[in-house]
Simulated assay, not measured.
Amino acid sequence: MQLVTEPYLTQVNRWPKTGRHILAQYDDQLIVVYQAYRPAIGNFAAKHGYFGSEFSFDRMSWIETNFLWMMYCSGWGTETGQEVVLAIWIKRLAFDEILAKAVHSSYVPELYPDKSVWQRELKQSQIRLQWDPDHHPSGVKLERRAIQLGLRGQFLAAYARDWIANIEDILDFV
């Protein structure tokens, strides 16, 4: 496995307890995001290094940088349709572009002049940003928030084919 791992009890002491944070494995070139899929999609992606076959380009696809959030969402790879857990290394410049163009799923008065502007931007956006409760390995919600990014349209197509440097099925580790 190519992921760099460290015991949870070692890492958690360095992490902020509250607030919105992007917890991720990254360097100047790449960042790891996580997704979980049914075998037909996940196995194809892990084998070929891109998304194709039964992957749908007609819907929004969500990526997470936070391993524990992905484990919570996928039931540690046991939820139906999420049996293949993938670590996906994408280009850091692409991730930065995703963040720059993301529109929050919920209205944030500090970021948008008024609610109608936010609604218009949200409707037109191909990238959604959500801050959801992070989770302890046991599944308990934490005060810290984890980022999720939803991609569709041209951004989903670029992510699925052009921005990926590596895909690894990490279910055995999970």
Rank of each mutant, 00 (worst) to 15 (best):
L3R: 03
V4C: 08
P7T: 03
T10K: 13
T10V: 15
Q11Y: 13
Q11A: 13
Q11H: 12
V12L: 05
N13P: 00
N13K: 15
N13S: 07
R14C: 05
W15Y: 13
P16L: 09
K17H: 11
K17C: 10
T18K: 15
G19W: 11
I22P: 06
Q25H: 10
D27K: 06
Q29I: 01
Q29G: 06
V32E: 02
V32G: 01
Q35C: 04
P39D: 07
I41Q: 14
G42W: 09
F44E: 12
F44P: 08
A45F: 13
A46N: 07
A46V: 06
A46E: 13
H48K: 15
G49V: 03
G49D: 07
Y50S: 12
S53Y: 15
S53A: 15
S56Q: 10
F57K: 05
R59G: 05
R59V: 09
M60G: 00
S61M: 14
W62A: 10
W62Q: 11
I63V: 09
E64G: 10
N66L: 01
N66E: 02
N66G: 05
N66V: 05
N66W: 03
N66K: 01
L68D: 02
L68M: 09
W69R: 03
M70K: 07
Y72G: 00
C73D: 08
C73P: 03
G75I: 01
W76T: 12
G77P: 13
T78E: 14
T78V: 11
G81C: 10
Q82W: 06
V84I: 01
V84L: 08
V85E: 00
A87D: 02
K91Q: 07
K91N: 06
K91D: 03
R92V: 04
R92C: 00
L93H: 13
A94M: 09
A94V: 08
E97A: 05
L99T: 03
A100T: 08
K101T: 11
A102H: 08
S105V: 11
S105I: 08
Y107K: 01
V108M: 12
V108N: 04
E110F: 11
L111R: 12
Y112P: 00
P113I: 14
P113Q: 14
D114M: 04
S116I: 11
W118E: 09
Q119N: 05
Q119Y: 00
Q119P: 01
R120V: 12
R120P: 00
E121R: 13
L122V: 00
S125A: 04
S125M: 02
Q126G: 00
Q130L: 07
P133R: 04
P133L: 01
D134V: 05
H136Q: 04
H136K: 09
P137F: 09
G139C: 05
K141T: 03
L142W: 10
E143Q: 09
R144F: 04
A146N: 04
Q148C: 09
L151C: 06
L151S: 12
L151F: 12
L151K: 11
R152K: 15
R152A: 14
R152S: 15
F155Q: 12
F155E: 05
A157F: 10
A158M: 10
R161P: 00
D162M: 12
D162I: 06
D162Q: 14
D162N: 13
W163V: 03
I164L: 14
N166R: 15
N166G: 00
N166A: 15
I167G: 07
I167V: 03
E168I: 13
D169L: 04
L171R: 15
D172S: 14
